[in-house]
Write a protein that binds this DNA or RNA. Structure first.
Lengths: 159, 159
DNA sequence: GATGAAATAGCATTTGC
DNA sequence: GCAAATGCTATTTCATC
């Protein structure tokens, strides 16, 4: 836990992770502080980067992306330049929702949102052309737990 | 794409995915509509479930969760009751950030955020005790593309 | 350095068009 | 979908602990 986060900060973060669509006055009431103090705290949390952004979370199917797949990828080569170029390609493909380098049997895990199977095929082909090897796709079937907030309220040393 | 989303709706959704921390008046200016019309549209998008929620996106490391792992799991049994119980267990573990059923070599992919290695070990053990088998963990090393918004602006039939 | 109270400017929200 | 009007909020200023 970064230094300088007290109990009230953590409660604010918890509330904002669950629902940031509330007025400052309402949040102030929830944590028992004046609107002014609450405003100052939230501003600092944003400026320090603890809060990276406030964003709308959409229903993928309702906006035309019913297909979601996890894809593991190994790269064809492992030179720094090749890797950098491939990472840039990932960032440039809008249907690539997340991309992470991992340690394990494979090099990366990425998540792709697609409109339909041909759309998905087109995206995978594009990645392949950019130097992805051993591409393994796992089709998402069912969401058991959708993007839970980080459990910031639990004390750092509690088990 | 769900029926009833026109170009302006999609632009609003795109803006809100990138940054929902703006006033209604500002968004109205961006899409060239009056504040009233913008307010009505956004309210409808929320009520219809297209916008699931507005939330704060935190920096995991700065709030004490420097460790992130992808975990693939196969279940010990595949009876409906066993599955349901296991899914409930996943939802009850706060460090489990997402959990998806997938089609492929394994049954599920989950993402875990942990404070340190012992913390991670404790969580994995807990999942194991609940009936997870063939647990494979992939340690997250580097974020190449952090949670990009859905590309709602691209027309549904464009390639 | 952080908080609270009062004041102002701006916004969300409603009503009527 | 727009414009005007109202009530509320964010935000600043200033004082306090």
């Amino acid at each position: 836990m970064a230094a300088g986060l007290d109990e009230i900060d953590r409660r604010l973060l918890d509330e904002l992770q669950h629902d940031a669509d509330r007025t400052n006055a309402e949040l102030a009431g929830l944590v028992g502080l004046s609107p002014t103090a609450t405003l100052h705290r939230i501003r600092k949390l944003k400026e320090s980067g603890v809060i990276r952004r406030i964003r709308a979370d959409l229903d993928p199917a309702l906006v035309g992306f019913p297909l979601k797949v996890y894809v593991t990828i190994s790269l064809a080569r492992h030179t720094p330049k090749f890797e950098r170029t491939f990472y840039e390609a990932l960032r440039a493909v809008p249907e690539v929702i997340t991309a992470d380098v991992i340690a394990g049997e494979t090099d990366m895990v990425i998540v792709i949102a697609a409109r339909d199977v041909p759309d998905l095929q087109r995206i995978l082909l594009k990645l392949s052309l950019h130097g992805a090897q051993r591409i393994t796709t796992f089709l998402h079937l069912e969401e058991i737990k959708p993007s839970a907030p980080l459990p910031v309220l639990r004390a750092p040393d509690e088990t």
